[in-house]
Design a protein around this nucleic acid. Structure first.
Length: 296
RNA sequence: GGCCCGGUAGCUCAGUGGUAGAGCAGUGGACUGAAAAUCCUCGUGUCGGCAGUUCGAUCCUGCCCUGGGCCA
């Protein structure tokens, strides 16, 4: 069924990109391997955690033996201590897609990070991450003067952005101020979603909620059996800690809390399961607004 | 068999003679330099059952069902 559709899609398009998306534990990996085999494809990952080296179990990274000889990109590309931004992702992913095309193969973009996917399939205008120190200063100011002060500041500088950001949303607030102060323009000034140059075929994996949650619960249990705790210990031993965005991923953060004696092993397991369920729900919220997705 | 304490939202429980509310879970949503991050929204349920008292009972009384504890 989906094979037929892809077949005719590929015949008609000159610049195809097949996207496979869905919440965690929905079976993206299996489907992508099958389709890549069928359509001589190669896979570009759109997963914000699998980019990190050494974080395998907690991110359900695909194993070499499971790849069936299909080339994968954007996995294991950076060290957990390295800063990585959406801008970096977009640049690298697009060049990977180009590479797959030059090889005469079909590019598959597969993953669950909605922002990363959108960044590639729409023409997001992102600018490189320039460290100017503005952010540090803003964070310092936030700590000293509080949320309300900072929000008022944004309101007077960039009322349009302020209207779109909730006062409690720390990350968004800081970023909006940073953009305005360092560029003199609103963060939302260029928020236009134009289609990218690719011919897109979007496949979403849909599972009913109860089933999905059961799969998630089981997957987390398996992670414990497979050595998530040991993997986390190893990462901590290498000097990576929770203040890194890599290590604040679901799973690692909770294990670290358990190792620190803050929660019991049972609590830790339940917490990770819950956080993962909540995450899956957020992913679905993101995907739902894209009306071009064909759900299977 | 007797005595005591419970039975209220999926779970843990609070509460009032004028038909009820928190936490957790869950739901819907936002998102363009951390995105597995960050943030917002949403609480009607035979108040265990039946009968009685009352203008009115989830709240008082009686009986029954049911969970736990103590004494025999």
């Amino acid at each position: 069924m989906i094979n037929k559709q892809i077949e005719s899609f590929l015949q008609e398009s000159s610049n195809p990109l097949i996207v496979i998306l869905g919440p965690t534990a929905s079976g993206k990996t299996d489907l992508s391997i099958k389709l890549a085999q069928r359509f001589s494809g190669e896979i570009v990952s759109a997963d914000s955690r699998q980019i990190y080296k050494y974080m395998d179990i907690g991110t359900s990274k695909i194993k070499d033996t499971e790849r069936k000889g299909i080339a994968h990109y954007m996995i294991d590309i950076i060290d957990p201590g390295t800063e990585f931004s959406v801008y970096d992702y977009r640049e690298m992913a697009i060049s990977c897609i180009d590479k797959v095309k030059w090889k005469g193969r079909t590019p598959f973009l597969v993953g669950g990070t909605g922002l990363y996917i959108d960044t590639v399939i729409y023409n997001y205008s992102l600018s490189p991450c320039v460290v100017t120190g503005v952010r540090d200063k803003l964070e310092e100011e936030y700590k000293n003067k509080g949320a309300k002060y900072m929000y008022d500041k944004l309101r007077s500088l960039d009322p349009f952005a302020a209207r779109k950001i909730h006062p409690n949303n720390y990350h968004h607030l800081i970023r909006a101020l940073e953009v305005y102060i360092s560029t003199g323009r609103s963060k939302f000034g260029q928020s236009k979603k134009d289609k990218s140059g690719y011919d897109l075929f979007l496949v979403g994996i849909n599972i009913d909620r109860d089933n999905l949650y059961e799969r998630i619960n089981r997957r987390v249990e398996n992670m414990f059996d497979d050595g998530l705790v040991e993997e986390t210990k190893k990462l901590v031993g290498m000097g990576y800690s929770t203040n890194l965005s890599s290590m604040s991923s679901i799973g690692y953060k909770e294990i670290i809390a358990m190792l620190g004696g803050e929660i019991s092993e049972q609590e830790c397991l339940l917490l990770i399961q819950k956080k993962t369920r909540n995450y899956a729900k957020r992913q679905l919220t993101w995907f739902r607004k894209n009306k071009d997705i064909i759900w299977i």
